[in-house]
């Protein structure tokens, strides 16, 4: 006997993500799912963003990591509210991990919640967490061919942050190519160029984050 199923393989994840989304909405919280390959600078971006915006808005962070608590410790030093999720080997966060973490993470008083996903450009794109938007960080040292190699996340994201611009002179990376090819995939992408080291580009980036919190 044949059975027609037509069932989304990720529906279990999507339905819990919907619950998270509801909870975020009730708390009037704007949530950003931050995705990049390992070491592109997600935690550095959060550290500098939090420090810059400390007096203006309240930022919370959920840190996803395969095994350590290092990133959460770095965020803790900024004074922001942070909780760690260890995925125990999984290459992405899923909505249920976030749901569980939220039981021990008060949302009151926060304006923006960042969820730093596990360093990986492929898998996190499939797993909605209940966020308002996905943001992808690409550092210039990774090469300018990445958008076309990982189109899924560049299509899904609303924001692209090109990081480590201070290292441009030492690479053969073309920012114009990154922009051109990522806009071919996603013409609505908001692109920022920053250096978490020098602070270049942070005025524009931080103004944008403040505008999201309103």
């Amino acid at each position: 006997m044949k059975i027609k199923v037509v069932s989304n393989i990720l529906k279990a994840n999507d339905s819990i993500a919907e619950k998270n989304r509801q909870l975020f909405k009730e708390n009037k919280l704007f949530v950003i799912n931050l995705i990049s390959s390992p070491g592109a600078g997600k935690t550095s971006l959060l550290e500098r963003t939090i420090k810059t915006l400390n007096s203006k808005i309240s930022i919370g962070v959920i840190e996803g990591d395969i095994a350590t608590t290092r990133d959460a410790e770095r965020i803790e030093k900024t004074g922001a509210r942070v909780i760690q999720i260890n995925t125990n080997g999984a290459c992405h966060l899923d909505s249920n991990m976030v749901r569980t973490a939220l039981q021990n993470f008060p949302l009151n008083g926060l304006d923006i919640l960042f969820i730093e996903n596990v360093g990986n450009l492929v898998c996190p794109a499939n797993f909605n967490l209940g966020e308002d938007i996905k943001a992808v960080v690409l550092s210039v040292t990774e090469g300018d061919d990445k958008p076309k190699k990982y189109p899924g996340i560049f299509r899904e994201a609303k924001i692209l942050i090109i990081n480590k611009t201070d290292l441009l002179p030492y690479t053969d990376c073309s920012i114009d190519k990154i922009k051109k090819e990522s806009l071919e995939i996603n013409p609505d992408l908001n692109i920022f160029e920053v250096s978490c080291r020098s602070g270049e580009g942070f005025d524009e980036w931080c103004n944008y984050i403040v505008s999201l919190s309103n």
Binding site: M1, K2, I3, V5, V6, S7, I9, P187
Partner: peptide
């Protein structure tokens, strides 16, 4: 125009089963 809606290509579906 660059305002394009994806019609297919993002599927991740269990479509059909044969059982007994």
């Amino acid at each position: 125009n660059t305002d394009i809606e994806i019609i297919s290509g993002r599927e991740l579906f269990v479509d059909e089963l044969e059982v007994e």
